[in-house]
Amino acid sequence: MHEWALAQAVVYTAIEYQRKEKLREIVELEIKIGELQQIDREIFEFALKEIVQLKKMTGMRVRVEKEEAILKCRVCGYQWSFADSMKRLSGEQAEFIHFLPEVIHIHSRCPQCKSPDFEIVKGRGVKITAIKGIK
């Protein structure tokens, strides 16, 4: 239930945004979940629903989208999708990346030059891409 902690962070951020922007209500929230963190979408959405109810924000519609994880080698410039690396990972390695996506630098290499010096271009973890509210 690591997903619960991230869902809680999303709802707390919406509350903070509502306070800062002096909104009467938040009506919509858009979230992207990066493929790299391998979040269980079902658990994440269930946790979101629970916390939204707990915080009495039931008027808020939440849209969750998956974002493809793209990696780019800083040495040779090669770009690839995490989905390709994922096929070569053991269950344990994938689980460690789920907890802390940065450990991918231990378990993956650039497919072209084998360097561990690559950038996570997109699709790392959870981010909020839009918040709509009423003043």
Binding site: H2, A5, L6, A9, F96, F99, L100, P101, E102, V103, H105, I106, P116, D117, E119, I120, R124, G125
Partner: peptide, 29 residues
């Protein structure tokens, strides 16, 4: 970080270090 990295070297640059710190602070109860 040893729980997830073990004894293996972890070659991280600044942005990755920041992200890992934020993650640990955000999910640790």
């Amino acid at each position: 970080i040893i729980y997830y990295a073990g004894e293996r070297p972890l070659p991280l640059r600044g942005a990755d270090i920041s992200n890992a710190i934020v993650e640990l602070l955000a999910i640790t109860q």
